[in-house]
């Protein structure tokens, strides 16, 4: 499997898109830090990059790559390799490449301009969301045979997690405005990795406001080590589950 990761990684790095993506992240982050007069405003810009651009690029790039790698997969499937290992290798190769891109594109500017807790939380969130959306991409590529359908599904997933879901939650919130909704909201936030990442960042960037509004429950939850472990466990589940589902489906897929 290590060899497969190696070859996927080499192949992705040879293809210019990931380099362009790294540069794009780098240019955006750098310019945010250089143009904004305070670091916290730059961090807010980066928050938007992290919760919109990073998932979008991750899921689209990985889905397209999965289709383009079909030759690679076909070539290797006839070789004595376990199928699950093959796809896990492809997934980990994708994750590794996105990890490197994010680490360079966002990590370096953060290390230079904002090497504090909020900076590292941002970097961590960006890497986690890249992984989660690579995982979802794997699933959408394995589920659909047709490239256009697969990319459509990927786009839909992204749109759902970044816009539709929050719209629905807002609607639910106002429908049930008379009931205590804090715990429900906490649960709902766990069902969307983007929300989870965003809230982790809010607790860094808007801590003062967060303390005021949802007060105790939030501080107790995300302030305690159990809360952090729970949130981290949840995001790890988001990284693993779709990929596992995809690998399981791939095991019985006809090529």
């Amino acid at each position: 499997m290590k060899k497969i990761i190696k070859y996927i990684l080499l192949d992705i790095l040879r293809n210019k898109i990931i380099i362009a993506y790294t540069l794009l992240l780098m240019v955006i982050s750098m310019s945010l830090f250089l143009l904004e007069d305070n670091a916290s405003k730059a961090m807010l810009g980066l928050l938007n990059i992290t919760i919109i651009i990073v998932p979008l690029v991750s899921i689209i790039f990985c889905t397209i790559y999965m289709y383009n790698a079909s030759e690679f997969i076909e070539l290797l499937i006839a070789q004595p390799i376990r199928r699950t290992k093959l796809l896990t290798g492809v997934y980990l190769g994708l994750v590794a490449s996105l990890f490197i891109a994010t680490l360079i594109g966002i990590g370096i500017p953060v290390f230079i301009y904002s090497p504090d807790t909020s900076g590292f939380t941002l970097l961590f969130t960006a890497i986690a969301l890249s992984t989660v959306f690579a995982s979802l991409a794997l699933l959408s590529a394995v589920m659909t045979r047709d490239k256009a359908k697969g990319i459509g599904l990927a786009l839909l997933l992204w749109f759902y997690f970044s816009f539709i879901y929050d719209g629905l939650v807002l609607m639910i919130l106002f429908q049930f405005a008379d009931y205590p909704m804090e715990k429900t909201m906490l649960a709902l936030s766990m069902l969307n990795p983007i929300d989870l990442g965003r809230i982790l960042l809010l607790l860094q960037l808007d801590i003062s406001a967060m303390m005021g509004f949802t007060g105790a429950l939030f501080r107790d939850f995300f302030g305690s080590s159990q809360g952090i472990i729970f949130a981290a466990g949840n995001i790890i589940l988001w990284m693993i589950l779709p990929a596992l589902l995809a690998i399981n489906k791939f095991k019985n897929k006809d090529l």
């Binding site: 192949d11 030759e71 006839a78």
Partner: peptide, 13 residues
């Protein structure tokens, strides 16, 4: 097994 497919597809790069 050594396999030679009908349509050989290889990683293009």
């Amino acid at each position: 097994i050594g396999y030679m497919p009908q349509m050989s597809r290889f990683p293009e790069n």
